[in-house]
Every structure is written in C-alpha cells, then in structure tokens.
Amino acid sequence: MAQYTVLLVDDEKEIIDLLEIYLKNEGFRLLRAANGIEALRLLEKEHVDLIGLDIMMPHMDGIEACMKIHENRNMPLIMLSAKSQDMDKILGLSTGADDYMSKPFNPLELIARIKSQLRRYTRLNVPQPSKEHEIEVDELTINTSTHEVKVDGREVKLTPREFAILELLARHRGHVWSIEKIYEAVWKEAYFDADNTVMVHILKIREKIEEQPRKPKFIKTVWGVGYKVE
C-alpha cells in the first residue's frame, strides 16, 4: 500500500503525540500543525492526502481553515472537536468537512475513518479509461481502436470482416442495412444477387456474440429488408 500523508492540526500536543503512535504503526506519514495558519503554510510545501482538523484553535480556528483549504484543494478532511452538539457537527460538515469526530475519541476509530475516507477519495479520483473508441450496445462492447469485442466482459474473437460488419451495424444503431449495402460498405465492391456471403458472416457473428443465435438479441433480421442492431 502506498504511504499516505496525514496532517493533524490541533493545539493539544498530547493528542497529536498519541495519534502519531497509531498512525505510524499503520504506515502513515504524519505532519503536525498547531493552528490553521500553520496548516496552510505546510500545505504550500508538502503533499498531504488527508487532514484531521480541530475546531477550537488560536489564531485561525478549524472552520475558517477548512474553508480556506477547500478554496483550491481537494482532499478528505475530518473535523476533530470537543463540541458534540448537533449544530456544531452540521456547521463543520457544511463548511466542507467529510467527517466529524467528537473528543474524546478512540484513536482506533479515527484510524478506521481515515482509511475509509482515503479509500473513497482514491476510488473517486482514479482516472477513467477513455471510451472514445468504444461502441456499447447493452452488454456488447466494441472497441474500434483495438478491434476487441466483449459480451458481458467476455472477449469474443471475430475475423476482420465479421468485426467490420458488426461495427457498421452497431455504429448506426437502429438503422436497417440491406445485404447489398452491407456488402458494398465492408467489401468495397459491387454486390451480386446470388452472393450469400453477408448472410453467412451474420450467422457466424451471431454464433459468437449471441447467447441464443436463433433468437438474437443484438443483430436483428428485418424480413425482406436486411439487418440492424437495436
């Protein structure tokens, strides 16, 4: 697991000393600040993954510090306060805190909440792969860049011609393509009436992507007209 840095902001040194033992045992790196001003200065020069912030502090209290931190930073923040009234919790959470713990608290519970917040923020901020080259039809995914086809996560191997037909139909979802138009678009040559090449390829594609090829879900036959993907 990557080492995360936690900044604890509290003017009670004894509390930070105690929490440091638990945090280091869990593999965290700890930074300290005695008030909001010190915390903001540290944030200018240190990478911080999560902040534990006391509310009642001299010079700059936790509420003001929380608002300033979130002006240009996105990180989980847990309020730590001797105030346990509902309105105090609401105030802390409404200023941008992700969680609120009333003092005195069990250090192990704080560690658990720190881990929970870091998991949530890490998951939310994982870059999502671009779907620019993907065509999705329910459980069917066609990647036009890698020429991969998957059905419900299972990879399906298609020939280049089969892939081209499936891509053509899926890209123009809902549009009915005649056998002649499919042939000319994929083979790039004139179609002959006696040629059943397209029909054979459609049958093979269905065998690979359909759960029940005789009752196709993806490639539908429009009798007397052609084929379409719905």
Rank of each mutant, 00 (worst) to 15 (best):
N74L: 10
R113C: 08
I111V: 04
I111R: 00
V126T: 03
M57D: 08
L108W: 07
K68P: 04
V48D: 10
K115D: 04
P76I: 01
R123I: 07
M87W: 14
V126Y: 03
P127M: 02
I69T: 06
T122R: 15
H175E: 14
V149Y: 11
L91W: 12
E162Y: 04
L80P: 04
S81C: 07
G92W: 04
P76W: 06
M87K: 15
T159S: 10
P160Q: 00
E136S: 15
V137R: 06
T144Q: 07
I69A: 00
A97P: 02
I142Y: 00
P160G: 00
E184W: 04
D99T: 03
S178Y: 05
T159H: 01
T141E: 09
E134W: 07
E184V: 05
P127S: 01
I111A: 06
A164M: 08
A65S: 13
Y121I: 06
M75S: 07
R113D: 05
R119C: 10
E134Q: 10
K115T: 00
H133L: 02
L53Y: 04
G52W: 11
T122G: 15
V137W: 05
G174K: 09
L108P: 09
N74A: 15
R171I: 10
G92E: 03
M67I: 10
P129M: 04
G174S: 03
K150A: 12
E139F: 11
R120V: 09
D138Y: 13
I135Q: 01
L93P: 01
A112I: 07
Q85N: 11
I90H: 02
I69N: 02
E148K: 13
R173C: 15
T144W: 00
R173E: 12
D54I: 05
E136Q: 15
I90L: 02
P104M: 04
H133S: 08
K181W: 13
